[in-house]
Design a protein around this nucleic acid. Structure first.
Lengths: 234, 234
DNA sequence: AAGTGGTCTAGACCACATG
DNA sequence: ATGTGGTCTAGACCACTTT
């Protein structure tokens, strides 16, 4: 475990355990260095990481302060931990509707920069929050990188499997967001009246070496899905 | 100008001028250090900043690569430069509908942690893209921090005025996103049929010392507004 | 003036990828 | 084995805020 990550985690845990309010002042930089027995540079890096995550904010010449991070009921777009983590406290379940092999559509060809005969796993599932439909997930996994998938893996955690069994590390992702009217099929799946609005979130995931391996096209129930993100202007 | 920011800007400019494609390999770290005459640590910091912005991605043991950043027609949620910047190439205009002084509603009291008699400027305006309505902006500026506003300032750039004339620096912001059915008034303002979907984006801006000073509640026309964000999983 | 966060450096060492 | 990115350190110096 890297030192600055470890220190960052420990500071974050302390903040959460003590339930410090937004704006609470933390000990000074040099003070924290002594407390955690690391150099100034390492502490600066740990704090920069926490600031990026929205856990704290730093004011030059003044101090280090707690920033309110979690908003109960909101799905975080910043932290990529998946909404099972964001929505802890709610009952999250899922149902697999389809798991098949398909070849690249024109959309996939463009997004993955691949030929039309490249094979993908297509996974369609519903995700529920407290037994109400939260979203429809349409995922395309590139078989070049994910050579095998089955229903068991999918019922558990695809990303967990990808990282542990295949040792494929997630590097970064692009997200595309918009609203639109639901089509008949999606409205029905989401248990909503025809022509209800939908929140559309497309995510393209890249490995740590920059190769795209998963496109997820998600349609969220507007009544249950609210999103949240934090940014810093530096 | 800080050295690492300067170096980062220069590298970014080079990438854009040369129109390097996604995946193009840049010179090695040490190579870049020599080229820009900075220490390794400073270059690491410059590159970390570019990686965070989505301009490049780094692969340990392998190299530094260009990441495709801008998606034409999409509004970036990551870079806080405002959509006039994201949508360069389109004609962006605006029309002020209302500029009045109000006292804190219960929503404002909660978000700003302020008493009910605290005064705010309320600004309502429409923003157009190529002469079509893109969004309705409802902004509340805290008079404690922004003591004066008039129509002239508002027609120009509120954030430019805040930063230059008032020397108030933007520190960070919280964003809340959801879809919903438009009410009659908003649908009419957006030139959309009744009960069309709308993309709702609320933004709460904080000063660099952590004081919230602006709440913007924005309703976007789902036909013209598409959003984009990049994240890294490290 | 004192205290606090932020930048920058040189250099040692570590971790990963590629040939 | 070599090269590449990444971490960590001690310490000098800078910029901003508070008293």
């Amino acid at each position: 475990m890297l030192k600055y990550i470890d220190v960052a985690n420990r500071i974050e845990s302390t903040i959460k355990e003590q339930k410090l309010a937004q704006g609470t002042k933390l000990p000074s930089l040099m003070n924290l260095c002594e407390q955690y027995q690391v150099s100034k540079t390492t502490m600066v890096k740990a704090l920069a990481s926490l600031e990026q995550q929205g856990v704290i904010f730093q004011v030059q010449g003044s101090g280090i302060f707690v920033r309110l991070q979690k908003r109960p009921g909101f799905i975080s777009l910043t932290t990529n931990s998946g909404f099972t983590h964001d929505l802890s406290g709610y009952k999250i379940t899922s149902k697999t509707l389809e798991l098949t092999t398909v070849t690249a559509t024109s959309d996939l060809q463009e997004k993955f920069e691949c030929p039309s005969d490249e094979p993908f796993y297509f996974l369609k599932r519903l995700r529920y929050i407290d037994d109400q439909v939260l979203c429809i997930e349409n995922s395309y996994f590139r078989q070049k990188l994910i050579p095998y998938l089955n229903r068991e893996i999918v019922e558990d955690s695809v990303f967990g499997y990808i990282q542990k069994a295949l040792n494929l590390k997630i590097g970064f992702s692009d997200k595309f967001l918009r609203a639109n009217t639901l089509n008949t099929e999606d409205a029905e799946l989401l248990s909503l009246p025809p022509k209800s609005p939908g929140f559309f979130l497309d995510e393209l995931f890249y490995s740590n070496s920059g190769v795209p391996f998963d496109l997820s096209q998600n349609v969220y129930n507007f009544k249950h899905a609210k999103f949240f993100m934090q940014s810093i202007n530096k």
